[in-house]
Design a protein around this nucleic acid. Structure first.
Lengths: 116, 116
DNA sequence: TCGTATCGTACCGCTTGCGAAACGATCGAG
DNA sequence: CTCGATCGTTTCGCAAGCGGTACGATACGA
């Protein structure tokens, strides 16, 4: 069952969520950072730097930098792959899961209050 | 008629839209910039710097800087208020309207392809 | 074992956004 | 006419992301 919505509703949804995020001074993630974060939490693991880079169509340093930032914020963790020591496995954290969860609820709430 | 959606659908919608925006290398607007842009195009005019600052809960320089950036991108224009020369009226542009329109269609398309 | 490919990261200079404070221009009350 | 208030902008030092490149560590085939 797909979600049906009109362009004006879509834009108002986008607007409402962003406006509230800005107002509450939420952690200011880049579009890229948010995309990486959502990939980690919505797509099946394992997640590697090169895998994310390929998926998003960006270079590896972009991923590394984003992981540095979000790691410092406690949203993700890194771990060496035991089978192949060259790889780094990106893992979820409790704080990250909570943040994602709140974002989801937030969008749902905004959608519910959308004008018909 | 409010839009009903579950948190997982909301997050997947957010994910899909952001992922495609990143992949197509769309102009990389800050959350604040996007919020300002959407305010200008979704809320009734006139829009002033202090009005936007108050609405978003940020300082005026933030608005000025964002307008500089988006002005250079051709998304908005500034004009002096003729009645009160101290005021600046922020105006929409054709390019900005097109960009917003495409964003809306984009979100709608993503929503339609959402898993049930 | 040696050489090459692959992985993630560190470095480089550069651009851009940030908060806080100060500024010039303009308005409006007295 | 004058003086205080208001508006948007500019400036400052600072932090963070960017693209591109080079690097050390690890894996793996010949």
């Amino acid at each position: 069952m797909p979600i049906e919505m009109r362009p004006s509703q879509a834009l108002n949804l986008w607007y409402g969520v962003h406006l509230d995020l800005v107002r509450q001074g939420a952690l200011d993630l880049t579009a890229r950072q948010l995309t990486i974060l959502l990939t980690i939490y919505l797509q099946p693991p394992p997640h590697t730097v090169r895998g994310l880079a390929a998926k998003l169509g960006v270079t590896k340093p972009v991923i590394t930098r984003a992981l540095d930032t979000m790691g410092a914020l406690g949203l993700v963790t890194r771990r060496r792959d035991e089978n192949d020591q060259r790889n780094v496995i990106i893992q979820r954290t409790v704080d990250g899961a909570l943040w994602i969860e709140r974002l989801g609820d937030f969008i749902v709430a905004q959608a519910k209050d959308l004008p018909r």
